[in-house]
Design a protein around this nucleic acid. Structure first.
Length: 214
DNA sequence: TGCCAGGCCGGGT
DNA sequence: ACCCGGCATGGC
């Protein structure tokens, strides 16, 4: 029932927006950094911050491990919340360097469920950030839920207002084939739809590519 | 100009 | 177990 609607939404969005080819980053490590920097923040601002790190050739685990938190905060300033985010980046990078030698390939080999639990314990990483890292940097079959996912489904009366992250994620997991590329593309399409139409400032979602869902 | 953006934490009930 | 203020920049 609901599973069919979720597949229908995917096809509608794919037809409307075309392939998204997410995540916009050159390396898996860059995905991790972007996932933290984009917390409640416009992607354009994140790009500025990442450019600063690239300019100085600092976009790798070892360099960011060695740099001071103050200096890091200054570099990522354009992304907003730069003090808290510098701390959050440091927390993640320390974990990566100290437990996995700074190697995402090594991290990738550890059991998915326990890895997710460990990442969630890092201060500053919540479910969306962790799942973005798992899906887009580590290629794990985990569906990412974000504000757009919630808003789009809610506006189409497909979920109750109080639905939790885990419940919503379970909805997608049970409705879809366990396919990393599908999960990546679907989430990216929801973001595209949210940015273009399903905005707070456009409460009626006009013109909505998902109009008259059955 | 004010509102918004691909969250999450910590302190208070 | 919730609820809510705080965190901050840049674009529209």
């Amino acid at each position: 029932m609901k599973a069919k609607v979720l597949r229908e939404i995917y096809h509608r969005l794919y037809t409307h927006f075309g392939p998204q080819g997410w995540w916009p980053a050159e390396t898996p490590f860059e995905v991790c950094i972007g996932a933290i920097l984009t917390q409640n923040t416009n992607w354009q601002n994140v790009e500025r911050a990442i450019s600063k790190l690239k300019e100085r050739d600092l976009l790798n685990p070892q360099k960011l491990y060695e740099i001071s938190e103050r200096e890091l905060a200054e570099l990522i300033r354009p992304s907003g919340y730069y003090n808290v985010k510098a701390k959050r980046l440091k927390n993640f990078i320390s974990f990566l360097v100290e437990k996995y030698g700074g190697d995402l390939e090594v991290m990738k080999r550890t059991d998915l469920h326990t890895l997710r639990e460990k990442l969630l314990k890092i201060k500053g990483l919540g479910p969306e950030t962790v799942d973005s890292i798992l899906l887009y940097a580590l290629e794990k079959p985990v569906f990412v839920i974000d504000a757009y996912t919630y808003r789009i489904l809610f506006r189409h009366s497909l979920i109750p207002e109080e639905v939790t992250y885990e419940e919503l994620q379970e909805l997608f997991h049970s409705a879809l084939e366990e396919d990393v590329e599908l999960f990546k593309e679907y989430h990216a399409l929801l973001v595209a739809c949210g940015k273009t139409y399903c905005k707070k400032s456009n409460p009626l979602c006009e013109p909505c590519p998902l109009a008259e869902l059955k």
